[in-house]
């Protein structure tokens, strides 16, 4: 009889962990696909308020991959555009506020380049985004970078709009 509350607690923690894992995976598999914003200067939007979580005995991460905006690049470039810096400024704030969140930055390229060159280019993109976050006060230890080159395109088309979608540094929570 005395064991019941402990058992309940274990079950609750387990369920919450499962729920959180599900969220993270879903976010990884279904990345946001905003079009590459033209470099229009926008006011920095306030941080999205965390979704209220029902009362549970353990805290759950209040940040999802959907809270991050991927960073887009020009052809053959790993230079951060103005829209990329805005996205990274928001990401840096999120990461500073939520010290328990670690991320992987995936570098991706469009199909116009060789396999091997694009692997290197994708890494340059991921590292450019990582370095910006580190300069904005995020610990380098919380960021992994990884390049998929042109191997994992977000858009399958063979035109400028697909290419623009595929030149990015993509946020994944881990």
């Amino acid at each position: 009889m005395r064991k019941t509350p402990a058992l309940l607690l274990v079950l609750t923690v387990g369920l919450v962990a499962l729920f959180a894992a599900g969220c993270a995976r879903k976010a990884t598999e279904a990345p946001p696909t905003p079009p590459p914003a033209p470099p229009v200067v926008q006011p920095v939007t306030p941080e999205p308020t965390p979704v209220p979580v029902p009362e549970t005995p353990v805290p759950v991460p209040s940040v999802t991959a959907g809270d991050f905006t991927d960073v887009f690049f020009d052809l053959d470039s790993y230079t951060l555009r103005d829209d990329a810096k805005l996205a990274l400024d928001r990401a840096a704030k999120l990461l500073r506020d939520k010290a328990n969140v670690n991320i992987t930055l995936e570098g991706h390229c469009d199909e116009r380049g060789t396999v091997e060159y694009n692997q290197a280019l994708g890494e340059k993109r991921a590292n450019a985004a990582r370095d910006y976050l580190v300069n904005a006060g995020v610990s380098a230890a919380r960021i992994q970078s990884l390049s998929y080159g042109k191997e994992r395109p977000f858009a399958e088309g063979h035109d400028e709009s697909a290419w623009a979608q595929n030149r990015r540094a993509h946020f994944v929570l881990r």
């Binding site: 060789t114 091997e116 060159y117 692997q119 290197a120 280019l121 340059k124």
Partner: peptide, 9 residues
């Protein structure tokens, strides 16, 4: 190689 650019292939 020792260069800030991409070197590969």
């Amino acid at each position: 190689t020792d260069n800030r650019a991409i070197d590969t292939s």
